[in-house]
Design a protein around this nucleic acid. Structure first.
Lengths: 244, 244
DNA sequence: CAAACGGCTTGATCCATATCAAGGTTCCAT
DNA sequence: ATGGAACCTTGATATGGATCAAGCCGTTTG
């Protein structure tokens, strides 16, 4: 099965309304976006955009996870970004990108035709400001990841990745319990994100499990059993840790 | 000696006029910038901004090289950016940064008081557009570096660094000869940029010299003797190589 | 001028992670 | 239900780069 064109949800009920590129838009601006947007779905594993291919659309991730990857001639691969719900694909003035975008889980995108969106951005400070914020957030994230790739140990890398997943999908229930979470990536994809091999990722995940920091219900679903210890394992500043 | 406040150069004669944040500005916009700008110099090794400290000014690098570094509690350090002439320090809406900015050579900055600049950006699309371009360029560079840090060998890392220096300081003379260049970083700083140790950097530089790719007049000054071989050593796509 | 210091090189050794290899589990297609 | 493919685990071994160590060079300091 190929790309799905789905029924679109009204912006007012959209789960990413307050974090996506439209976050600052008022009701009338939202109406314009609502009119031109289309939804598309991609199954896990499907390519969304190839490197160098001119973008037909820009989009917000509504649900699911997509990855940005760079590949060397000999096959070495580095993931350079992970797109979670509310993250944005595409930038004004850049019709081409120099990495591949792939759905790593089933993904639904809220798409805008490239040219129409660009025009809209020029007329809508609320959009262009938010786009700048999103770009700067990504820049911060990329630099944080440079520290991880260049200086952290395998254990620190894996712990940091898990902690990031927890932070980005903050949906503790009322009690503050952490519901079970799913790893959105295979061991190999995690390895490509963390600059490791899949064997090392597997060993480190099992080490964190053995040390009582994570528990697994199966290979993809886990709970964080000791969040403050997890934080200590990331190598990041001691203070950032939240005892919950 | 501390920070120097220098006489400022008129924008019309400014060496970074066409690449810096002001690149798209017209004459009248330039006049406004000219009126509010100040020059400051920092000696090699001096801090420019500390992590977490509220920015007093934003600035373009006019000459010299500055670095952005992140440091872990135990002292592990990763350089997350290298600012060469025309690069910009500071972003609208972000009064604090989470890395240190340091002069690695003697540096001259073209500074704008934070609040005044922010106001100007809001009223000047030529500025805000250019600021977005610069941010996206940095994002591209950061992602390129993620590939380097996560997947390249020590030799590829060093070759990539040298090639980047050559590319960014493109000033071949009329014959296309490459004049002697200076390394703007110590071995230790290069190591922190490349995710290596200083010993490994030293060994790889000497290996490139032994293989006839670089030649050194002293420890800091070198020539590229085989630019196409240098490119091959970077591990990047075969086509990007320019035979000059 | 000597001494101290920062930056760099070079050699010897070590070790974290890669690589190689084999087998297990889950899920899907026939 | 059977076979196969994708994914994951685990063990044995190899290795690139880190670490430890010593000494050199050039420059600054006393």
């Amino acid at each position: 099965m190929s790309i799905q064109f789905n029924t679109k949800v009204d912006c007012q009920y959209c789960p990413i309304r307050h974090r996506a590129v439209c976050a600052r838009c008022d009701d009338s601006e939202l109406e314009v976006l609502n009119a031109i947007k289309t939804y598309r779905s991609f199954e896990a594993g499907q390519p969304i955009v190839w490197r160098g291919e001119p973008l037909q659309f820009v989009a917000s991730v509504v649900s699911g996870v997509a990855s940005l990857t760079k590949t060397m001639e000999d096959g070495r691969t580095q993931m350079v970004g992970l797109l979670l719900p509310s993250d944005f694909i595409g930038r004004p003035g850049r019709r081409e990108i120099e990495f591949d975008v792939t759905a790593t889980t089933d993904v639904t995108l809220c798409c805008f035709e490239y040219k129409a969106f660009e025009t809209l951005v020029n007329d809508t400070p609320h959009l262009s400001q938010r786009l700048m914020e999103l770009a700067l957030d990504e820049l911060d994230a990329a630099r944080e990841w440079m520290l991880l790739l260049g200086r952290k140990t395998a254990r620190e890398k894996v712990a940091t990745f898990i902690e990031m997943l927890v932070r980005r999908s903050k949906v503790d229930d009322i009690e503050g319990n952490r519901p079970e979470m799913a790893l959105p990536l295979t061991r190999e994809q995690m390895a490509n994100y963390l600059g490791l091999t899949l064997e090392t990722v597997s060993r480190q995940l099992n080490a964190l499990k053995k040390d009582g920091i994570l528990s697994f219900t199966d290979r993809r679903n886990f709970n964080v059993t000791d969040i403050s210890q997890l934080h200590l394992e990331t190598g990041d500043d001691a203070d950032g840790g939240v005892i919950s």
